[in-house]
Structure formats: structure tokens, C-alpha cells
Nucleic acid binder design. Structure first.
Length: 646
RNA sequence: GCCGUUGUAGCUCAGGGGUAGAGCACUUCCUUGGUAAGGAAGAGGUCAGGGGUUCAAAUCCCCUCAACGGCUCCA
């Protein structure tokens, strides 16, 4: 008999050779029908494999992340089986589960595969699923594995096998399809009840752009047909929050082909929103000891030769600007750091001056690849809420902590909860590509991790993701359709202080090199506004909203009074517009609701006589009658409350 | 930059080898109203740009540009 511990702490005795599936059946038949895989001593395995003694077992269903990904991984095999049947001779590369579904990279060898092919693949997948074909695991020798795929003529699988050790190679077979796979898999294809191919895209083999481009087929499956329907509705809902759509609808920004691709034009309402965010940060930064500076939009080529950016990025940048003066060259600035280094160098610095914090809403231009441009999140001209902190090595940790506090303050004010702090450190193996002393790196990497922990950040550590000049901490958030973007960033830099020969005089009367910290809590105004739009689905918090109040005269006779109310509100620092179109109130309310204006003030005969307004809140309806002054006070109190607590 | 899809009015979209369509928005007029769409008329397009095939191209073909979905990249 075997003793098996379950997640609830109970221990069950089962016969030798019992699988997780059989264990589930002993607990309840319903559970057995839903078990997709099992976590045995922390490792996810096939539910059909015999359990070892004294194992801790968690039965995985659709409700577990690992259960989901097992189903999707198996679904990738199912899709591969269908593709192989429908398109004989296709070569299969890899097919992993992803966050929402799975994909398979396929080499169709020049034959087209488009959306029109989707439905027949889905149909065949479901047909094969209904056959309830078991996923059968088989250990094979490297030689046999090579023989199998040589026979099949699949060079991608052969390449994968090359990297594997003899003795660790397994095949999984379901129906007529066998794949090289580590597993685990669901018991049989019958668990898959709904399948949908989502899209096709190109993807380089092994992610290397020098390799052949394969066709990546994205798909998703579910154990219940209704869940697929739900998922598709969700996807549609998410698309409605897309900042590109809302930015257009709300009149925030615009792209013009004539201006150029990736160069956003900020419309009045978008400018208002952005300026308000800048002001908010400016105030916070002033409190945190930053000194605003302003630098030009161009800099001489020599500046970037000094910084090293010319050598590294020059060829891929907007090309240098030539002047009538022979040999003179300027570049559009791709970052603000070199300018700020020169500000540091403007006068001799003492250790007593440090830390020095120079901040600037600095607009920069980067020649991003065409295929990379994306709404406001990836553009060619953008404004960083940049600052550079120059400090002593001993001050690094405290300064990073203060930057994190600032970022958290902003996120809290805007109610961003779903973010992840990514700590990017050196590649532990390949260390020669990093500049700066081992000692400083050690100290800095440790400092970043310690501060991140002290601040209670939800952190992931990525090795090899550090910049060549220093480790960094990035705040990652997701957009409406699940893509990850970096917003706030803190980066240590040992390179530029060296290149610009930055120094300060220490208490020992010796020259020392300061450490430089790059940081941008928003990341860039463009990207931050994009994420903010999606975060609040265009319904901005009242304090940020470009149009807080819209005044709706009942008829044209009250337009004058409406304007008077608007002026009064303006004096109280409330942003109000009058809808003086020749329409009925119902129509005006509808328009204001769709424009996501928080407060609507209906004014007519009674209000005009009483110097009052009839207020209505978006999504809530009528609030009753207020004097103009009371209404203004109410709005201002609401705004003050939003900004107070934090 | 690479693979794929798309490009028709300000917006959302229909149409499709034979004189360009709808709804909303816009302008004018009527209406002067009370909490999510009042009515009528009008104006608006080299069908992304360029080239080709054809008696005839918005429609078919080629190139370019842009947007979209990914890949690669992101100082």
C-alpha cells in the first residue's frame, strides 16, 4: 500500500500502482471526470502514471493554472494531428501552451495557410477529440528518436533532439500522431470540447531572425463549449478598452500619415490630460527633491560619440542633421542622459551636493522599426518623465528606495494594482559584456533586490536582462488585450559617469566617480496615457478628466445662463463645457454619457431663476438640485479627497 | 526589418469590371423642449498613392505607403 498526502492535509492509503486518475475515482466520480493532470511532489505529471509512495498529490483540473496549460499543451498536439492530416507533409516545430491557449509553429513550406482554413482545422480537431484518443507516453532512445523523425523528414524535431540527452527523451502518441514531448498530457482527447483558431502570424524558428520564418498558428480550447463563448465575449470587451479606439473616440490623440508614422499628435483634450499628469508628477518630484532642468531637442554628434550611443545605435537612429557648416552634425536626441551629464559637469561638485536629482519632461526621438510601432505604446517621438540622480555608491540603495516610493505613490493614486516589478540582473555566465567593477555590480544588484523586497513588491528576477551599463528594475503592466508593457523604470548606470568623466570631491578631498540612476515613473507620457486609458476604459478619475462637467441647457433660451454657470465653475478651477447644440436634453445627456463626462448639469427656467443647477452623474442618474456654489464645492471636495489620502 | 491581413465620406461599415452607398457626425431650416437618439433639406469621396491589364478599373495584377495580428528589436 502507498500513503498519499492530499492538499487538505489528509493521507490516503492506496494500492501499489495506483495512478492519480484512479485516486481521483476513489475520491469521487465527478472529480475523476475533471482531472486533467496531477501535481506529484510539486511536479506536474500525467494523471495516468503510477504514484510513488509517500507522495504529496494535487489533482489538477481546469481550475488550476497547470491543469489549463496541460489541456492546452495536449490541444497543441491535437491541432498538429489535424494539420498533418489536412496538409500532408507539413513540418512541425514547437507547440507550447501560452497564457491564453497555445500555438504551434508550422512550416507549411510555402503553401498558404490563412483564416479561411481555420474552420476545417477546428472541425477536424473536434472530430478527433470525440474519438477520446489516449495520450500514450513512451520513453525512447536518442537513436530511435532520430530514426523516427529522419524517416518523417522533420528537421525541426531533429534539431530539438540534438540538444537532448539520451535517456530523457519521450514521445507522446494520440490517435495517428506522435510528437517529441516531455509532457505531461491530459488522459485523452475527449476532454477537449471546444476549439478555436485565433490567428496566424510569422515567427522565426527558435526566435532568431536569421532563421527561417515559420507560420505560428494560435488557438485556444476549452473543456466546455460555453466557456469558449464566454472567452470570445471577453476578448470583444477587451477590444473596446483599446487605447487606440478610445483615444480616437474621446478626441485625445491622432496620427497623421503626412506627419509621419509613430509621431502622435496630441489633441486639446489629450494635451489637457497629459499636462495634468505632468503637473501632478512635477509636484511630487519637487517634494522628493528633484530639480527641473531643460535641455535642447538636438545635440551634437560628438555628444553621442562620448556617450557611446553613436557607436551602438547610430546606424539605426534618425540620421544626423547636417548644417551649412561643413562637417557639423547634430542628432535628434534619443535620450536625455548625455545632456544631463553635461549639466552635472557644469560646475565642480562636492559630496555635500549629492544626491543631485535633475528632472525633465524630455522629448526624444528613436527610429523604431516599422513593424514595432503600436498606438501610443510604441512610437518614434515621445516624452520621458525622465530624471537622473547622481549619488555616491553608498546612497544608491536609499535613492532606489525613494524612486520606488514615488512610483508606488503614482500607481496608488491612479489605482494601478496589477503590476509586476521585474529585476534585471547580469547573465551569470557571460559577464564580460558588462561595464563597471564587479564590486559595484554586486552592491547594486543586491541593493535593488533588497529594496524591492523591503518595499513589498511582487518581483520577478530576470538574469541576463540587465543593460550592459547596470542592473534595472522595471514596473510591468498589461494592456487591455494582455500585452505586457514596461512603465516605470529605475536603472543604475556605471557607464556614462565614466564616459563623461563625472566626478565629485569627497570628504577625503579626493575625486570620486558618482553613480548615475536613470528613472522614469511613467516611463513615457505616451505609454502611460495609453495604459491609463485602458486601465479606466476611458473613464478617467475626476481630477484628471479633461471635461469634468457638461452643462446642458434645456433650450437655446438658457444658453446664456449655462455660459454663466460655466464661467463660475471655471473660476473654481472646474473644467466645464456648455452643450449649446439645438437638441433636446435627452440627446444631450446621451452624448455626454458617451463622451464619459462625469457630471451633467441640466439648466432651464427653474434653475435660471434660482441660480441653481440640476446635477446628474454619469452612470448614476439624477442627483437633484444644487446651488452653483454648492455644486462647485462638491466637485472640488471630491477631487481634493482623491488626492489627499495618498 | 520579417511573415500574414487590411485600406471606400470625419467615424463605423456595405458594395464591387460599366457615372459611388448607408448610419452617425457636419451645415441650414423647422421645432424651444426637463434626464440616454425630435423632424426636414443639404454638403461631403481621384474608393491610400503610383504603375499595369482592359473599349472601360474603386473592383483584376504589380510596386510603394500606412494600419492591424504576431516575430525580431526596444539606449
Amino acid at each position: 500500500m502507498l500513503n498519499i498526502s492530499l492538499p487538505d492535509g489528509s493521507v490516503r492509503s492506496v494500492e501499489e500502482g495506483t495512478s492519480a486518475m484512479q485516486l481521483a475515482a476513489q475520491i469521487s466520480e465527478g472529480l475523476a471526470r475533471n482531472v486533467l493532470a496531477a501535481e506529484v511532489n510539486g511536479v506536474v505529471v500525467d494523471a495516468s502514471r503510477p504514484l510513488p509512495d509517500n507522495a504529496t498529490v494535487k489533482l489538477l483540473t481546469w481550475n488550476d493554472e497547470n491543469g489549463k496549460s496541460t489541456l492546452w499543451h495536449s490541444s497543441a498536439h491535437l491541432m498538429a494531428e489535424a494539420l498533418e492530416a489536412l496538409y500532408p507533409g507539413v513540418k512541425l516545430a514547437i507547440g507550447p501552451p501560452i497564457e491564453n491557449g497555445f500555438y504551434y509553429d508550422v512550416d507549411f513550406e510555402g503553401k498558404p495557410f490563412t483564416q479561411e482554413d481555420f474552420s476545417k482545422v477546428e472541425k477536424l480537431m473536434l472530430e478527433l477529440a470525440r474519438q477520446k484518443n489516449e495520450f500514450v507516453r513512451k520513453e525512447v532512445s536518442k537513436a530511435d528518436a532520430i530514426a523516427y523523425f529522419t524517416e518523417k523528414g522533420d528537421q525541426y524535431k531533429l534539431e530539438l533532439i540534438e540538444g537532448l540527452q539520451d535517456g530523457e527523451i519521450t514521445f507522446y502518441t494520440q490517435g495517428n500522431f506522435t510528437d517529441l514531448c516531455r509532457g505531461p498530457h491530459i488522459p485523452n482527447t475527449g476532454f477537449i470540447k471546444a476549439a478555436k483558431l485565433m490567428n496566424v502570424a510569422g515567427a522565426y524558428w527558435r526566435g532568431d531572425e536569421k532563421n527561417k520564418m515559420l507560420t505560428r498558428v494560435y488557438a485556444i480550447t476549452f473543456p466546455k463549449a460555453a466557456e469558449l463563448e464566454e472567452y470570445l465575449v471577453q476578448v470583444e470587451e477587451a477590444k473596446k478598452r483599446d487605447h487606440r479606439k478610445l483615444g480616437k473616440e474621446l478626441g485625445l490623440f491622432h496620427f497623421s500619415q503626412r506627419v509621419g508614422s509613430g509621431l502622435p499628435l496630441w489633441l486639446p483634450k489629450g494635451t489637457d490630460l497629459r499636462t495634468r499628469l505632468q503637473n501632478f508628477l512635477t509636484v511630487a518630484q519637487k517634494k522628493a527633491g528633484y530639480q527641473p532642468v531643460i535641455t535642447p531637442h538636438i545635440g551634437s554628434k560628438e555628444l553621442y560619440e562620448t556617450s557611446g550611443h553613436w557607436a551602438k545605435y547610430g546606424a539605426d537612429s534618425f540620421q544626423p542633421i547636417h548644417t551649412p557648416q561643413e562637417g557639423e552634425m547634430y542628432m535628434l536626441k534619443p535620450m536625455n542622459c548625455p545632456h544631463h551629464c553635461e549639466i552635472f559637469n557644469a560646475e565642480p561638485r562636492s559630496y555635500k551636493d549629492l544626491p543631485l536629482r535633475f528632472s525633465e519632461f524630455g522629448t526624444v526621438y528613436r527610429y523604431e522599426q516599422t513593424g514595432e510601432l503600436h498606438g501610443l505604446t510604441r512610437v518614434r517621438g515621445f516624452t520621458q518623465d525622465d530624471a537622473h540622480i547622481f549619488c555616491t555608491p553608498d546612497q544608491v540603495k536609499e535613492e532606489i528606495g525613494k524612486v520606488i516610493d514615488l512610483v508606488l505613490y503614482i500607481f496608488k493614486t491612479l489605482n494601478f494594482q496589477d503590476f509586476l516589478a521585474q529585476v534585471s540582473l547580469r547573465d551569470p555566465i557571460n559577464r564580460e559584456k558588462y561595464i563597471g567593477s564587479e564590486e559595484n555590480w554586486e552592491k547594486a544588484e543586491l541593493a535593488i533586490q533588497e529594496v524591492a523586497n523591503e518595499k513589498g513588491l511582487r518581483t520577478v528576477v530576470e538574469y541576463g536582462e540587465a543593460a550592459f551599463y547596470g542592473p534595472k528594475l522595471d514596473f510591468m503592466v498589461r494592456d487591455a488585450i494582455g500585452r505586457k508593457w514596461q512603465l516605470g523604470t529605475v536603472q543604475l548606470d556605471y557607464n556614462l559617469p565614466e564616459r563623461f568623466q563625472l566626478e565629485y570631491t569627497g570628504s577625503d578631498n579626493q575625486k570620486h566617480r558618482p553613480v548615475m540612476i536613470h528613472r522614469a515613473p511613467f516611463g513615457s507620457m505616451e505609454r502611460f496615457v495609453a495604459i491609463l486609458i485602458e486601465h479606466c476604459a476611458g473613464q478617467f478619475p475626476l481630477w484628471l478628466s479633461p471635461e469634468q462637467v457638461r452643462i446642458l441647457p434645456v433650450s437655446e433660451k438658457y444658453n446664456e445662463y449655462a455660459k454663466k454657470v460655466a464661467n463660475t465653475l471655471e473660476i473654481s478651477d472646474i473644467r466645464a463645457l456648455v452643450d449649446d447644440t439645438n437638441e433636446k436634453v435627452g440627446k444631450k445627456i446621451r452624448e455626454a454619457e458617451l463622451a464619459k463626462v462625469t457630471y451633467m448639469l441640466v439648466v432651464g427656467e427653474t434653475e435660471m431663476l434660482a441660480n441653481s443647477v440640476s446635477a446628474r452623474k454619469k452612470g448614476e442618474g439624477d442627483l437633484g438640485v444644487f446651488s452653483v456654489e454648492d455644486f462647485a464645492t462638491m466637485v472640488n471636495d471630491e477631487v481634493a479627497n482623491m488626492l489627499k489620502e495618498i
